[in-house]
Design a protein around this nucleic acid. Structure first.
Lengths: 335, 335
DNA sequence: CTGTTAGCGCGTTCAC
DNA sequence: GTGAACGCGCTAACAG
């Protein structure tokens, strides 16, 4: 069952069938109909492998993320897949765990697949040496980016978001803050800078702890911070995973928010408003970011010489109970 | 840059190069080394499209889930990708939203891609008419299955899990339970049966509400149940999403667990132990299920005539505060 | 064990 | 606007 059979059935040549299905060169209406009819009748589907071999393109895109289980990437990937699907593009998924070796393997895989493009969340290290021309395909960066890199990107304004989050905490009276951030990620460091700026504006000193972006590490770092006396007034997380670790540590220590310690962080995960008394977070427009990323990629594929663009989106501060002024809240067992 | 160049560089024929890289037919050690050296020197990577066209295989697998954002599928997909990656297999991802039309599109896509196999979570409807032979590739079902279907599958023992969960609630004194379940899913219905059995064993009547498996629907159904007087003693969720909706409704109503209403459900999501006083759930071995699924698939690919197997795993009951006997707990504002 | 060679199915060029 | 023919890069069959 191949293009030849269709040509025979339609009474035309294979070239005509190819033209009808390719849809570039014009074909006479009667021939077109005959071909479509034959395709229908035979249930013909063109062979992608042959098509790719011949055309050197693959109508597939790559999605290379550090860990699909990170809710941010889960949501992004869903957006990417939605748009890709509506454009008849296959999505090839790869997790890197921030491991440069695995990143290289994934990108090689994408090269082998001759994908039309890749949406990538590079590790700090890869980002440092990122040259867009190194790959045979266009790349759109998501979530991670550094000034001067010649690549399309979709980002949160991390500096601004962290600054506003910190300002908010200060305005609630939480001046002694501990900032826990993923030290290996660009994102974490940019957020640290925003935090630093806000603290500096109030002549407050910064207590920041860089950790691996894992729940377990965040939990341990939080426990350490909570063992000190006096307690810090607030714990601030640079990501959703770190926030999770902080809340675990708090529960484990039997401390309450914001009575004993205020808490705030990033990523408006579904559970953040269910944890008493609700977690104050910067919400990222995750789905939108994924959608923008693939749209940027599609534009880049259609016009490789276009100037690169970085799309910087603003986070939304969701003020919930965890960051309330501690005097205002009843708390559990506080006056 | 192709196999011919490598052959020339190595001083052998293209067939020998192909054999070295294919690794099936034996090749003399000196020739092997020459080839590998040439491959290294030229940075040669075989063309997947050509390889696929010729060999009619694709070293890619499909992962077709209803929604990657469902934490269960997120975790499964991570396991699948891990194993696939270690076997040099590409993973093509597709979301169906339980929509039969989209399911068909996804499976057609997989056919076009000539994937070696697919891991699939079929909708109720697709499952009803599922014929393994309809596709050109082997399929392993995950999470959804019905007796008599000739396909490999990896499942939770839903009946048993729901039965144990219900028994546990009864043993804690929560005899008047409302069971909220995804009516469109096999899983939800099987869990309802387990619930029913446990209730019947204690001569208790069943109050079950079938809903669409969405947080919003679960929330609304919960609110409706919570408006009744007297309150039910417990709300039980047939899935993680439904559980989320229940907890939202409870917070919205200002009711406490288990003081006002006990709560229990499925899926040990990271936040279930953070929500006061911890949510009692059936934990599914999600990562393991994904790993088993792809291993089953690989075995099936290697031996298509092997008898099909259904792997049924047992859920683990995690007893937390939300299901405690209500007399035992302080509650907020209860004596 | 190795080399030669014939296609895999399609898109595209070149005549008509 | 159409058809014939070539070749994309590779693997598998066959002959040596």
């Amino acid at each position: 069952m191949n293009i030849k059979d269709v040509a025979k059935q339609a009474g035309v040549s294979v070239a005509t069938v190819s033209r009808v299905l390719g849809g570039v060169t014009p074909v006479s209406e009667p021939a077109r109909l005959k071909v479509l009819e034959a395709v229908q009748a035979l249930g013909y589907r063109p062979d992608l492998a042959a098509r790719r071999l011949r055309s050197r393109r693959s109508n597939a895109i790559g999605l290379v993320v550090s860990d699909i289980r990170n809710p941010f990437f889960t949501e992004v990937s869903r957006a990417v897949e939605d748009v890709a699907f509506s454009h008849q593009l296959s999505v090839i998924l790869c997790n890197t765990d921030e491991d440069p070796e695995r990143e290289a393997s994934c990108l090689n895989l994408m090269r082998d697949e001759q994908v039309s493009g890749v949406i990538l969340t590079p590790s700090q290290r890869l980002l440092g040496q990122f040259r867009p021309g190194d790959y045979g395909f266009p790349v759109v960066l998501v979530d991670r980016y550094e000034r001067g890199i010649e690549a399309d990107a979709v980002l949160l304004d991390n500096f601004d978001a962290a600054q506003r989050l910190t300002e908010h905490l200060i305005s609630q009276g939480h001046r002694d803050q501990v900032f826990l951030y993923g030290a290996d990620s660009t994102t974490g460091r940019q957020r640290l800078e925003g935090h630093r700026a806000a603290m500096a504006a109030h002549q407050l000193s910064v207590r920041a702890t860089g950790i691996k972006p894992r729940v377990e590490q965040a939990r341990e770092a939080s426990l350490a911070a909570l063992r000190r006396s006096p307690l810090p007034q607030a714990l601030v997380a640079s990501s959703g995973l770190v926030l999770l670790g902080i809340v675990e540590a708090l529960r484990e220590s039997g401390l309450t928010m914001p009575g004993d310690v205020a808490v705030a962080g990033f990523d408006n995960m579904p559970w953040t408003r269910l944890v008493e008394p609700g977690l104050t977070v910067i919400a990222q427009p995750t789905y939108e970011m994924g959608r923008e990323a693939i749209q940027l990629l599609l534009q880049r594929i259609n016009d490789p010489d276009k100037a690169v663009r970085q799309l910087v989106l603003r986070g939304e501060l969701l003020e919930r109970g965890s960051s309330a002024a501690s005097g205002r809240t009843p708390g559990h067992g506080m006056p």
